[in-house]
Design a protein around this nucleic acid. Sequence first.
DNA 1: CTAGGATTTAGAGCGTGCTCGAAGTCAATC
DNA 2: GATTGACTTCGAGCACGCTCTAAATCCTAG
Lengths: 150, 150
Amino acid sequence: MLEVNPQPESGPAPSDQRAGVSIAEAARRTGVSVHTLRYYERAGLVAMPVGRTAGGRRRYHQIDLEWIVLCTRLRATGMPIKTIRRYAQLVSAGYGNEQERLALLEAHRAEVAARLAEVRENLRLIDRKIDVYRGRLDADTAVGAGPDAE
Amino acid sequence: MLEVNPQPESGPAPSDQRAGVSIAEAARRTGVSVHTLRYYERAGLVAMPVGRTAGGRRRYHQIDLEWIVLCTRLRATGMPIKTIRRYAQLVSAGYGNEQERLALLEAHRAEVAARLAEVRENLRLIDRKIDVYRGRLDADTAVGAGPDAE
DNA sequence: CTAGGATTTAGAGCGTGCTCGAAGTCAATC
DNA sequence: GATTGACTTCGAGCACGCTCTAAATCCTAG
């Protein structure tokens, strides 16, 4: 699952002023690889098209970077690419579909909440197993081996 | 991610006595498909080999079913197949490697905890977005459209 | 004995989300 | 003007975790 490691800005921001930044710089700032940035665009996650220079190079502006970061947040909660694309489409369609966007987000939140609960539950089980091993190791050379089990 | 829907036992358990159950029955009881049961075995997740009939059919006993269920729990927390295999190997190697098992489980728990925290954090962000949409919709026909944003 | 359904194996196929490669273009520097 | 390196597109490749197929075998009922 795509590691996101945005670098904190240092220095005077490479030619940021009114021109936007290169894809390499966007990658550095969002923590998303240039490959993935282009992939996200191809995949339709980037609703509002990123600007281009005369020569065809992408120029990322603040709003683009923020959108990308939002995408990474949604991904980090397990939202599939397809769903993010749908959301991007709604957003790019402009005003009038806020109910739909809200429904999409609420549906996702419900799923995330359900998964969280499930993971927490199963984590409890793992914790118990850990406790068993800890106990077994504490009492290691005590009696001649505990019960079988796993 | 593999849906696990174990069926609650009903009735007198189809020929359960001292013979173990068929793969179909094991699938029903664990909520794992027969395909996946075989796949898990091939993949080395099932340390202690499942018994076979004279004719070569698998017979699942209680302990086998419990192990499978454990695998589903580990999977549900995101443990990769590889790691479960490693764990299975340790378990099948018998006594003497409890430290290693413990370390494996603790490492996994740490990862799960970290992911949980991350998801919770990002979920908060989504919640805020939901609130924004809710607010916007509440005040729908109020002023002529809010600020742009996403 | 036979039909039919469950099970076996090995291997192929698939969905998802990246990740990479090739071949060509752009742009800053010497 | 030439070199060099970042950038472009587009398609292929990859890792993961299943999921399915084919052809053969087993086993139970009739």
